[in-house]
């Protein structure tokens, strides 16, 4: 069997394994889905709440859609982040990390398998939340550019993959608390990217950070497509920055991961189950 075929099969190994894990942990997945829906709805209701508190000056329907887009895009991107950063954490928890890292596969194949699963999982999960939210709030999407939104989110996933691969080294380097450390990355991205508010309300320093967060462009692009029905061609200013970020972040992420793996092998950190 050629090396290429073997590597493709290995990519599928990670996808199939994760599908099996999701099936076996179905009860947890259900709880997580209900939690995510409840979370999205409670944030979105703030829009109607603002209208009720401030009166006719506030367009409640607009605010609801603004917040719905924020929660959905954020849920999708954070799911990709979580599944990729858990590449090490799951295996540490199960004690299989040495077995997987001993397999004759390139790390890029390992990451590709986990990433493909993350994208498919994130898409399905987000679609379910979107379906519930749209029906509950009776949101009219007839003027929205759904294709454009999907394109912006797909481009955004690429840049998030690079960031996630970089963050995934934390559980490799810090067996005991590495997984929790990845939360700092996601928390900063949430703060500066304008998930629930325009980035213009942030102080100058944080606004500067928002420029280098891919989520900023994804959120703005999806909002333009969904709220204003901007055509796909006009969404390019939101797509190219995240593609460039992805092209830079993925190779850097892989390089960082390889260095961290080498360090772990040098210091014997792979064998620890934290």
């Amino acid at each position: 069997m050629s090396t290429t075929v073997q590597q493709i099969q290995a990519t599928y190994a990670f996808m199939e394994r994760n599908v099996n894990l999701v099936k076996r942990y179905w009860a947890w997945e259900l709880v997580w889905l209900v939690y995510s829906i409840a979370n999205s709805l409670s944030v979105s209701y703030i829009g109607l709440g603002m209208e009720s508190l401030a009166g006719a000056e506030v367009d409640g329907r607009f605010l609801v859609l603004y917040l719905v887009i924020g929660t959905l895009v954020w849920r999708y991107l954070s799911l990709i982040f979580i599944w990729i950063t858990e590449i090490i954490q799951i295996e540490r928890w199960e004690g299989t990390i040495e077995y997987t890292l001993m397999a004759p596969i390139r790390r890029v194949v390992h990451m590709a398998g986990q990433t493909l699963f993350a994208v498919v999982y994130g898409t399905i999960f987000t679609a379910i939340i979107l379906f519930v939210t749209v029906n509950l709030f009776e949101i009219d999407l007839s003027k929205a550019n759904l294709v454009g939104s999907v394109l912006v989110m797909a481009a955004g996933s690429i840049s998030f993959i690079g960031i996630s691969v970089m963050a995934s080294v934390l559980p490799l380097l810090f067996p005991e608390r590495g997984a929790q450390m990845t939360h700092i990355v996601i928390a900063i991205l949430l703060l500066v990217s304008g998930v629930y508010y325009p980035v213009t309300v942030l102080p100058d320093a944080l606004q500067k950070l928002s420029v280098i967060s891919p989520a900023t462009y994804v959120l703005e692009g999806v909002r333009q497509a969904m709220l204003e029905g901007t055509n796909t061609g006009a969404l390019w200013p939101f797509i190219w920055p995240v593609l460039i970020m992805g092209v830079i972040a993925i190779p850097i992420g892989l390089w960082v991961f390889e260095q961290a793996e080498r360090y772990a092998k040098r210091t014997g950190k792979l064998a620890r189950n934290g």
């Binding site: 099969q9 290995a10 004690g95 040495e98 001993m102 397999a103």
Partner: peptide, 30 residues
């Protein structure tokens, strides 16, 4: 090479078939 360690490390919720399928695919098996 392949290795069997003193602690049998598996995805505990998965069955032997699912665990072995995962392992075999890593080594290019169908």
């Amino acid at each position: 090479i392949n290795r069997v360690s003193v602690e049998a490390s598996f995805f505990k919720k998965l069955s032997p078939m699912e665990n072995l399928l995962y392992g075999a695919r890593l080594y290019g098996m169908g």
